[in-house]
Amino acid sequence: MRISEEEIRKLTLEAMSELGERATPELVKKVVEKSVAKIGSAPGKIQSDTFDSGRIILTAFGLDHAGIIAKITQAIADAECDIRDMSQKILDVFFTLIMIIDISNSPKDLKEIQTDMNKIAEEMNIKVFMQHEDLFRFMHRI
């Protein structure tokens, strides 16, 4: 089982708050290492290769103008999806947006959300792609 950077960061923070004043860099390191080893070897937690994370990656491109993020995030909120991470850049006049969205609690499936997004893409004259996170994980992580 792999542990993401984010999880290690969380563990570190937890260890620091628990140790309180006793926390020294060495001690925190030791505690975190122990916890990581424990999680790594926890039985019954082994995930299949194609474990479905329920997260999708949304990418949007286009000429920048007002209200793009507002529209997209509104649609995500309407679909009861949770934004887990978001990164946005303006390159010259081009707008690029990448979001990681958790759709596992949404009443809509990926296809329906995609249809919503296609409408927005047309309206705002941008391109919106949505793909399952698993695909990125499989292609870029071993």
Partner: peptide, 13 residues
């Protein structure tokens, strides 16, 4: 973000 900007763009491309 768990993926690099370039990685995501590469897959889309």
């Amino acid at each position: 973000m768990p993926y690099e900007f370039e990685e995501i763009l590469e897959t889309i491309k």
